[in-house]
Write a protein that binds this DNA or RNA. Structure first.
Lengths: 198, 198
DNA sequence: TGTCGCATGTAAACCGTTACATGATTTT
DNA sequence: AAAATCATGTAACGGTTTACATGCGACA
């Protein structure tokens, strides 16, 4: 459902073609929502069939820009104000960190350094994007909200990586592989806080 | 692919049943990776068929705990160290913020306040989880990395929401709905920085 | 004239959610 | 005895990715 809303959000700001939208998904939106062109084009057709957007005149090189309709604006507002936000998250960087105890600390540190570099580079990109906004325009004022969230989340990841590298460096080394409590027992009961099962 | 690795990560720490894993996906892992029970059970069967995990003796109430095999550990380590991390993100809270200019500022502020409360509540939960870890165990030391990332990201979201509420309060009010540059034109060319198309 | 970037799409495979279905054990 | 929680699953649907396919226009 949210891909539709992402497309309506972009088209509410200005008319765009599928290709333009693909660029956004590789730019600002990259840290917020992602979709590939093969998903975007059919969805635009569906939105047009539902009269939430309308195809404009064809441009050069077979360009097909769409604009939002009044009904599309109504649907977008309703989604914003009268539906629950889906807070489910997926972050592979952090997922991997849960598994880092199975490799030697030095390799874990190497992994964390790579991740830190990735997030630093993204942070630079986001800051550049922020400077390109024209805050006299309402859509850009809202985009600033999104970009600022991206910046703060990336800063959090970079500072986390710094901290994680230091933390992992203090881990006891050696035999991480099989150094877990004997896995033969069937049921480990009793006051078990933390992330261990029951 | 990453669901498999999430399951292997959990089973590397200790034997668990599908139900146990479901609890993790509702707990620590919620901010990092999410999967529903209906996805977990079949995937466990597939992992067992591929000999990356092994079914232990059946427990009470039809409980079926699995343990990781040596081959499973090998696959987990290879994934960690020899494959690229998928950095694609999806965050509906921030996606919605890109669209907030289409509603009156006071409604935008109400939305942001709700989001702030949600993230504050989650942050409290994460901090409690952090205190429940037993740092003498290697898997919990790695879990601390993940939990700390969750905490820092949630803190970033809460402080972002604070800032966003103040920012939106200064937005000019009135006619946000149709206050965008006339949408009739076909192609808006020329030096266009920011998030506008071409 | 060849290559690069613009621009749009289809089909199949894969991943994830929703709706449905069942039964055992513990608590009230 | 009823309700809540534990515990596992299947089938259909919908969303997402991967592989494939095509053609125009600008520039070297």
């Amino acid at each position: 459902m949210s891909l539709r809303m992402a497309l309506l959000t972009l088209l509410a700001g200005a008319p765009r073609s599928g290709y333009d939208i693909g660029q956004e998904f590789d730019g600002v939106l990259k840290f917020v929502w992602h979709a590939k062109p093969t998903q975007v084009y059919p969805e635009l057709k569906r939105l047009a069939a539902d009269r939430l957007i309308r195809e404009q005149d064809e441009g050069s090189r077979g360009r097909r820009p769409y604009e939002i309709t009044d009904e599309g604006m109504r649907v977008l507002r309703t989604w914003l104000l009268a539906s629950d936000t889906d807070h489910s998250q997926r972050n592979e960087t952090v997922l991997r960190s849960f598994a880092l105890w199975v490799v030697p600390p030095q390799e874990a540190v190497a992994y964390l350094r790579e991740e830190r570099e990735y997030h630093r580079a993204r942070l630079r990109g986001m800051r550049a994007l922020k400077n390109g906004l024209n805050l006299r325009l309402a859509p850009d004022r809202a985009a600033l909200l999104g970009v600022e969230a991206g910046i703060r989340r990336l800063e959090a990841m970079v500072s986390w990586a710094d901290w994680a590298i230091e933390t992992v460096s203090t881990w006891p080394t050696g035999m991480a592989g099989t150094g877990r409590p004997a896995s033969g027992g069937t049921d480990r009961r009793g006051g078990n806080p933390g992330i261990r099962p029951r």
